[in-house]
């Protein structure tokens, strides 16, 4: 259990997932900087990720696709807003519709990744995701539907991956 916190901030519409990793900062950076390593962890089991192009420099971009169990393909494209190895990475979902809204179903707009050295020598990685959608969570919380809403996780992953099982 290396996820140490998950913060859902309704004011700034962000979700921040912080994890302690048993790795150096440089090693943790390679999770993003090495496309072969990225492919290993990004997609859920059954949805292998293939990186098509990978230019992890400020102003660069990353394109990849995931393949589902039935061979269906989902493309992803990120613009690299900031790449400051090995500590800071900012990625914008470039796959948007005509109104500039993210259209990948995650409603993710920007990911802000920071990697710093932890107190005990490991790396602390924080991924702050700016959604255009966490407002929805506020509405749901305000409406009092807090209990009993946790779905079967494998199904949720399927929905998010575009392929309900």
């Amino acid at each position: 259990m290396s996820v140490t916190s998950v913060e859902k901030d309704l004011e700034s519409l962000t979700m921040t997932v912080t994890a302690d990793l048993d790795a150096t900062v440089e090693r943790a950076w390679q999770l993003w900087a090495d496309p072969r390593q990225f492919e290993e962890w990004w997609g859920p089991p059954g949805y292998p990720t293939t990186v098509v192009s990978h230019d992890l420099r400020t102003g660069g971009s990353i394109t990849f696709f995931m393949t589902g169990p039935q061979g269906e393909r989902r493309d992803g494209r990120w613009e690299v807003i900031t790449a400051d190895p090995p500590h800071h990475l900012e990625l914008r979902d470039a796959d948007v519709d005509d109104d500039g809204r993210p259209n990948d179903g995650n409603s993710m707009t920007v990911m802000d990744i920071t990697i710093v050295e932890g107190d005990e020598g490991g790396a602390v990685m924080a991924v702050r995701t700016h959604f255009d959608s966490l407002a929805g969570m506020e509405a749901v919380l305000a409406s009092g539907f807090e209990e009993g809403m946790r779905a079967v996780l494998s199904q949720i992953e399927g929905v998010l991956a575009g392929t309900p099982r």
Binding site: K8, T129, F131, V140, F145, M149, R150, A151
Partner: peptide, 8 residues
């Protein structure tokens, strides 16, 4: 919608 956010 809530399930999706938890799913994320």
């Amino acid at each position: 919608a809530r399930e999706l956010l938890d799913g994320i």
